Amino acid sequence: MAIRKKSTKSPPVLSHEFVLQNHADIVSCMAMVFLLGLMFEITAKASIIFVTLQYNVTLPATEEQATESAFLYYYGIKDLATVFFYMLVAIIIHAIIQEYVLDKINRRMHFSKTKHSKFNESGQLSAFYLFSCIWGTFILISENYISDPTILWRAYPHNLMTFQMKFFYISQLAYWFHAFPELYFQKTKKEDIPRQLVYIGLYLFHIAGAYLLKFSLWAVLFVLGRLLTLILSVLTVGFGLARAENQKLDFSTGNFNVLAVRIAVLASICITQAFMMWKFINFQLRRWREHSTFQAPTVKKKPIVTKGRSSRKGTENGVNGTVTSNGADSPRNRKEKSS
């Protein structure tokens, strides 16, 4: 008898299910096109815009500065192409973490659908936050922001950035832009999409704002907590930049140190931190209520026992209204025997 094989029908090419199942391979092929373009002279000039950082400036190295600090960068419109390429890289890394780490844990833990999606989201963000914290700490140490925090406002405007500082910004923007197509790839529920769009938009707003306005604060935000973020922001934007000599809006030199911009930056940071704390407190309160409701003991109702002659008579005559088969208990039978 022949063994019947299971029919494994692959979905049609470029269909909805095909894209969802093979989106990592499709994105990998797109990234390989840009990398292969570097090998040919005709396409190298176009591919290098996507792969490498643009707008580099070579300055002569001094004795006080390290040799690598002579290669500095500023931003421009070509950075959007670089962000797009590393957005593809972020999608590939997202798929690798999902397949080789999170999916294996999900199979062992047997989570429900709701916990499954929450675990995937938390796992991806935890990996990204850990990587960003390590990288941000390295930038703080190498750029001497910890030993001399006055550099944050004393050297403003930060027109030029080191390679690792610019690459950090590009990576952060690429990661949060990759979160938009991941809503489609991960089959996110419609009721969860508005919540994710809110915090994705907030992250992009603050990272892009710090990048375009030349405030080197985002590396600090990942390392320090919410309270230290507010303190450092007020210290840098509220006091440090307010005492700077040049407080005129000048687009040519990249100087945005004016009162209106400082107020907008501080207001956005404070509102965002307050919103995050409000969401965190509400989450903890809801979790505490659910836990207390689950732990509350259920009161068992005692069966009501009716005392009286009617109930006793019913049990003597039979069960549930039926007469017992024993006729010795009947008073009528006793009277017949006496006669």
Rank of each mutant, 00 (worst) to 15 (best):
F111K: 05
F168H: 03
I97F: 12
F168S: 05
T114G: 14
F163S: 08
D148Q: 03
L173C: 10
Y129S: 11
T150M: 01
E99C: 08
C133K: 12
H110P: 09
S122L: 15
F119C: 09
F119V: 10
I146H: 00
I170P: 01
R154V: 12
K113C: 11
Q124K: 13
S117N: 12
L125V: 14
S171C: 11
K113W: 07
T150G: 01
Q124C: 11
S122Y: 10
F168K: 06
Y169R: 08
H94P: 04
T114A: 14
Y145L: 05
A90K: 02
R107Q: 14
L152P: 00
K115I: 13
S117T: 14
I91E: 11
W153P: 00
G123L: 02
S171R: 07
Y169P: 02
K115N: 13
F111T: 15
A174Y: 03
K118P: 08
G123T: 01
I139R: 00
I141Y: 10
P149Q: 04
L152H: 02
A155F: 09
I105H: 03
T137K: 05
V101K: 02
N144E: 07
G136E: 01
W135S: 09
F177C: 09
Y156E: 04
I97D: 07
V101M: 06
N159Y: 14
L102S: 01
S126A: 15
F111Q: 08
I146K: 01
H158S: 04
S126G: 12
Q164I: 08
M165S: 09
T137H: 07
A179V: 11
F119P: 11
R108Q: 13
S126Q: 07
I170Q: 00
A90L: 05
W135R: 09
I170T: 06
I91F: 03
I91L: 15
A95W: 02
N106I: 15
I141W: 13
S132P: 02
D103H: 05
F111P: 09
S117Y: 14
F131D: 03
H110W: 10
L125S: 14
